[in-house]
Design a protein around this nucleic acid. Structure first.
Lengths: 133, 133
DNA sequence: TCTATTGCGTTACATTATAACGTAAACTAC
DNA sequence: GTAGTTTACGTTATAATGTAACGCAATAGA
């Protein structure tokens, strides 16, 4: 096990954790440039891919962005609630929903490998604020 | 009501329908170049956005691609099953699953506006084929 | 130490998507 | 029908996202 890549991975993860919201790979890149002025996209993407493998980071497909995993139990299929106001991303495990989904797809003969469940809307914090724009 | 944009929209939709699978905007562009040699990305994206508004086309977020809607009833929230072997995309309406999801999110105070439910895997056709690679 | 492996830095490029602007088509009113 | 308005088009340019490929350097194992 090489520990070589893990320095960069922990830096990337730290950046993502500092924000509660999803960041694009290039947002992460910009943050890391302070410490590593010559860093380039492949380095960031390599770290992100490794972190996704490990489950420490999730890709938000509908934003082309990345977010630190903050679910206590590392589920492999979860619901992501994305607030279009403030950008926050919440994770929810919902085993019954997954069972339900598996049932529906099972009937069609589809063999599911990966689930992307992303819900866009307004989080409770933003929703309860006065909408005095 | 201008009918002006609809010519291009119907061309784009025709291309997407000819394939059962998801196409990138640039795949569509290449197809249309036969008929419109000078067509450029904004034209295709404009048509795609209009078609998505109308419900004739869905965006596949996890592929950055587009697919013609083939569900009989135009549901506004559906499950897309994406075969990673052959690229085919199936739509399934699942009202109970949506209710289930709404229930889970309702408890968290999240107000859902748009659902992205995409399942990657292997379709029944590809799954039943001999895997003599 | 020697060697194999792995991931890094770097350059370059591929892919996906949009901004901005002038123009032409279609619609509206007269 | 013609003037004014709107709308989408074509065009150019560029932004944003993501990867291929290569040589090198660090680590691991013998």
């Amino acid at each position: 096990m090489s520990t070589r890549g893990e320095i960069m991975q922990s830096k990337v993860l730290a950046v993502l954790k500092r924000e509660g919201s999803a960041l694009s790979a290039y947002d992460v890149l910009d943050q890391l440039r302070h410490e590593y002025p010559k860093i380039a996209p492949p380095t960031v993407y390599r770290a992100l891919h490794a972190l996704i493998e490990k489950g420490g980071v999730h890709r938000v497909e509908s934003l082309n962005a990345f977010v630190a995993c903050n679910s206590t139990s590392h589920e492999h299929a979860l619901i992501m609630s994305i607030c279009d106001d403030c950008g926050s991303v919440e994770e929810n495990a919902a085993p019954e929903l997954m069972d339900n989904l598996a049932g529906i797809l099972g009937k069609t003969g589809f063999d599911a490998h990966r689930h992307v469940i992303e819900v866009h809307g307004v989080c409770s914090t933003c929703g309860s604020e006065d909408s005095t724009s």
